[in-house]
């Protein structure tokens, strides 16, 4: 096509903020020219993916888009990991449109969820991936691995309604792990070996588990900047107080929770024939990245700790300088999915 490809607009929802990223033409190689903006939201209007006051939420979103002059259609949204459920499944080998009603039928039966009225989707995983997952229709062969992703239907509907109110058209609502995978692919650092990735968002830390270049699991760590004395619910504020005891406590908690989830991955997701988790990647708005890296390397034995640091991005607003951004927001702004068994 001769027509210039539209810019990629991606939004990552955090506990109390939204990161907005604009990547020219949505191309991986244009990441360095990405523009980043952040909307801090009041707890009365929004909380961890849930829109509490649609009018005020929409007004703030609309105002930001108008100020930035970005395209307001075909926007990709990455949900907070805490509101979504990811589950590896072994499903009958059939085409995706035919499998969807089968999975729909199994929700609440073979697939137990902590909420009713689920909005769900799934993606096939590579056939070679030997996973430990719930098997739909036991005994039926052949079965193929797939990743089941679900979120409360009301949450998706309320988000869509709020975005519609703001005049912003959502084209994709995905989970952060998928966005991160796209960003990693663009950075040519696709995790092929069993890998844990800790991403510092604006105000939470998410853990993701990847294997064979695919996402298998995501969760949100019980860490919040406020707990460690950072004002404004922002990890960046913790950086300013890095010398304090709060930062040390945060590192201790981070290492403990990382170890706990490493054990979980070992026993719940890994099969006997597969190698152990040996990689721990750290990404996002990491406060004092060198200190965090050194601490985890010392505290978590047998793990290779590696920072994933894309170039600093330009803030969209006039007064902004360069700053880091979560991989999830960057990935959401990139066009196209990643190659998989689809």
């Amino acid at each position: 096509m001769l027509r210039k490809k539209a810019a990629g607009i991606g939004l990552a929802l955090h506990a109390s903020a939204i990161e907005l990223v604009h990547v020219p033409e949505g191309k991986a190689e244009a990441q360095k020219n990405a523009l980043v903006e952040r909307i801090l939201l009041s707890a009365d209007d929004y909380d961890n993916g849930y829109v509490k006051n649609a009018e005020r939420f929409a007004a703030q979103l609309k105002q930001t888009f108008q100020r930035l002059g970005w395209r307001r259609w075909s926007v990709t949204l990455a949900l907070p990991s805490s509101v979504s459920v990811l589950r590896p499944l072994l499903v009958p080998k059939m085409k995706k449109p035919k499998l969807a009603p089968v999975i729909q039928y199994q929700i609440g039966k073979a697939i137990a969820l902590p909420f009713s009225n689920a909005a769900f989707d799934f993606a096939y995983l590579p056939d070679s991936l030997d996973i430990v997952g719930e098997r739909l229709f036991p005994g039926q062969a052949p079965a193929v691995p797939a990743l089941f992703v679900a979120a409360p239907g009301e949450l998706i509907q309320s988000l869509k309604a709020a975005f519609d109110l703001a005049g912003v058209g959502l084209s994709v609502v995905e989970v952060k792990g998928v966005s991160i995978l796209r960003a990693l692919r663009a950075l040519r650092q696709l995790p092929m070996a069993p890998t844990m990735l800790l991403e510092f968002g604006v105000d939470r830390v998410d853990g993701h588990y990847f294997q064979a270049g695919s996402l298998l699991f995501s969760h949100t760590l019980d860490l919040a900047p406020e707990k460690y004395g950072a004002a404004g619910g922002d990890w960046a504020q913790l950086t300013l107080q890095a010398a304090g005891a709060g930062f040390e406590r945060m590192l201790t908690d981070l290492a403990r929770q990382a170890e706990r989830f490493r054990t979980f991955y070992r026993h719940m997701l890994r099969t006997d024939g597969q190698e152990d988790v040996r990689e721990l990647w750290i990404a996002g708005n990491v406060p004092e990245p060198e200190r965090v890296q050194a601490f985890l390397r010392r505290d978590l034995e047998g793990l290779q700790v590696r920072p994933i640091a894309p170039a600093a991005f330009q803030m969209a607003h006039a007064m902004g300088g360069l700053r880091t951004c979560s991989l999830a927001a960057i990935g959401a702004a990139l066009h196209g999915g990643t190659d998989d068994a689809n």
Binding site: L79, S84, A119, F120, D121, F122, A123, L147, V149, A150, A151, G153, I156, Q157, K160, L170, S171, V172, V173, E174, V175, V178, L181, S214, L215, G337, T338, D340, N342
Partner: peptide
């Protein structure tokens, strides 16, 4: 890997 939770 492509996931879209928006209702079709």
């Amino acid at each position: 890997m492509q996931i879209n939770l928006l209702p079709a």
